[in-house]
């Protein structure tokens, strides 16, 4: 017997449960709604939460983009894209602007998102208080009581130790003035993009069985102290070695011959479109010069 894969892989019962969870998550911004995470054909920790959201909401008309650490072409992104397109036959794109559904690991695209887009983020550890409290029952009670001194204490201890808050990614945020939320391991550079975003953000943690959301135009503030304000990664004086921009989140690479560091845009699709623009501008210049 040859089995035929169902549209979007998941059975309808699973999709329904995830859809109900998403609706509740949207109604309670930043609150982690438990769901029955399914066994997926990729390993837990490789984006099963995000994938389950994507498969539950995707329709025939969607245009999908998948990124992993800013790249459309890394293994995780390519495999997830293949799995989704093989089971749904939806179109895919690298262009952020064209996509209606974007699944991402660890980045929010540089191109501002629009209200017809949904960004699905893969989350390894959805609980911002996990580092200070191992028990799920207790963290649930802390959220219920809006008791977040642990999160503040964690930042305070970092300041005492290092002179600044030392969260490199996943810096906790306060959503709609109620819930402290882990924004998934996006760099601090991306935190401000969640605040009053035009697009819906959905977060899926497959291993931890949680789904949460930030609707558009919702107030989201990164936790910080008055005398130690929130600071994002700075790339002052650095430029991408390909597109020459100075205004992007960049990866530091090392030239193996000279041991000198150099920089490249982390969001490859934004970098590519800038390169194309530069190229077009040069062609116009040449044309005018003739």
């Amino acid at each position: 017997m040859k089995l035929q894969t169902h549209f979007a892989l998941l059975d309808e019962g699973s999709k329904q449960e995830i859809r109900r969870t998403i609706l509740k998550a949207v109604a309670i911004p930043g609150y982690q709604v438990p769901f029955a995470s399914r066994e997926m054909p990729i390993a837990r920790g490789w984006g099963t939460g995000g994938l389950q959201i994507t498969l539950s909401i995707i329709g025939k008309k969607d245009i999908l983009k998948v990124i992993d650490q800013g790249s459309d072409e890394s293994v995780n992104a390519v495999n997830i894209k293949k799995l989704v397109t093989k089971t749904t036959a939806v179109e895919t794109t690298d262009e952020t602007k064209e996509a209606t559904l974007i699944q991402s690991r660890h980045r929010i695209p540089e191109v501002p998102l629009k209200s017809n887009q949904i960004l699905v983020l893969q989350v390894p550890i959805p609980e911002p208080l996990r580092q200070i409290e191992a028990s799920e029952l207790k963290t649930k009670a802390l959220h219920a009581e809006q008791e977040y001194s642990g999160a503040w204490l964690m930042l305070f201890e970092q300041i005492m130790k290092y002179g600044k808050t030392a969260t490199d990614a996943d810096h906790p945020v306060l959503v709609h003035n109620r819930y402290v939320m882990a924004p998934s391991p996006i760099p601090k550079y991306d935190n401000d993009k969640i605040h009053q975003s035009e697009a819906l953000l959905l977060f899926g943690a497959g291993r931890e069985k949680k789904i949460y959301a930030v609707p558009p135009f919702t107030n989201v503030t990164s936790l910080a102290f008055e005398d130690y304000p929130f600071e994002v990664e700075s790339f002052e004086g650095k430029a991408c070695h390909l597109c020459k921009t100075t205004k992007a989140f960049m990866d530091e690479l090392v030239d193996e011959l000279t041991n000198e560091p150099y920089y490249a845009c982390n969001d490859t699709s934004a970098c590519l479109s800038r390169l194309n623009q530069n190229e077009a501008r040069m062609e116009v210049d040449v044309h005018v010069a003739k």
Binding site: H6, F7, E12, K15, Q16, R19, I22, L23, V26, A27, I57, I58, G59, K60, S115, L200, P215, P216
Partner: peptide, 20 residues
């Protein structure tokens, strides 16, 4: 079409829940 119609109804409902 139960699969695609419920998907469409859900997306519409989600869109409305997201934009009250």
């Amino acid at each position: 079409d139960r699969v695609h119609d419920t998907q469409e109804v859900f997306r519409m409902t989600l869109d409305c829940m997201v934009k009250p």
